[in-house]
Amino acid sequence: MRKILTLLVASTALTAVIGTTAWSAMNAAPDGSPRPFAAIWQDATQSLPLILASDDDDDDDESHGSRRDHDDDDDDEDCDDDDDDDDCGSGAPNPAPAGTVAPPQNGLFGNGAPPQVQVN
């Protein structure tokens, strides 16, 4: 029982200290002069510039959950028309290459050998 009381008192004291600090930092005096803890906050906001995380497009391998990036530096899977890879999904899907599925049942084909192709 004593242990519980001790823990409760300690946590309450810790909360009070943190809360007081935060409250002080967020409330300036009416005359504009900062309060003791707020002075730290005020100085920090004035002296430290805001630094944004890099947003350049130079990365080539991290898509962060999206299917693919769309920068212009790589040579695969972008949306331009000059590459030989997949397009961006607009329109009909690309057909299945020969050999991966059977030819369509359009009455033109027999049930014999699969198509064979050769380019000379």
């Binding site: 009455g107 033109l108 027999g110 014999g112 198509p115 064979q116 192709v117 050769q118 380019v119």
Partner: peptide, 8 residues
């Protein structure tokens, strides 16, 4: 292009 197909 040379294609050999089993045609009806």
């Amino acid at each position: 292009l040379e294609i050999t197909l089993d045609l009806a």
